[in-house]
Amino acid sequence: MSALPNPAAGPTAGRATGPARRALRGVLPPLLLLAAWQAASTGGLADPRLLPPLERVAAAAWTQLTAGNLRDSLLRDLGGFALGASAGLGLGLLLGLSPLAGRLLRPSFDALKGIAVFAWIPLIAIWFGFGEASKLAFIALAAFTPVVLNVDEGVRGVPAPLREVAAALAWTPWQRLTRLVLPAALPSILTGLQLGLIHAWLATVGAEYFLAKGSGLGGVLIEGRDRFDMAQVLLGVLLLGGVGYALNRLADLAARRLTRWRTA
């Protein structure tokens, strides 16, 4: 009788392949693309100087990763994001919570957000110099705007009927903030943080590319361009895409865990 299989394991295990198989389908196009790339460069369809074979990209990856360029970019990204997102949370909460602050500052902020973030580069370079500070400032600015917008919107979007319940339950202002406003705004706040994270990553390579030359993936791209080393350029592009995708997935997972009440 100990050899009897667990009847519950069968269908559960069978169902588990469903989402996994669906996830695999998403991986298929990039894999096919890589295979086509490899076939084109080894089969002589493309000039290997313009489209180098994958093993040369992999070799470049080894040199660049050991040189710490990916790590430097990630640290810069997260540092700038942390600065910009904290400031954005602060201003977003202020705009959303204080009607006076909202009326005073929202029009100016709406005007400022219409300026493309790259337009700030000359000013930032002059104000913060050509060192690490200006890169962090640029990344922080990129993360700042979507966080402010979404936090402000989330805080102002707390349903009036629930505000009345909080009033009927005689909650204190602090209880209303922590138990009503923040939980109600949380999905919107998380959206803002996720967008901020994406913008910060785009800004990281922008800062590395357009501001001072130095370590990081932006530097990898510049160096590859200057030496006409397409393996290195393609590696830079692949890493940017991969990291961006990974950051977004992580943010997605974190957001889903934090708002489990929506689907639990």
Partner: peptide, 22 residues
């Protein structure tokens, strides 16, 4: 109220307990 107006991020027990905070 006419609608239940429960806090969607709280469980049933937490929603009832929300009235006892103070």
């Amino acid at each position: 109220f006419q609608e239940p107006r429960l806090f969607p991020w709280l469980t049933v027990a937490e929603n009832v307990a929300a009235a006892l905070l103070n």
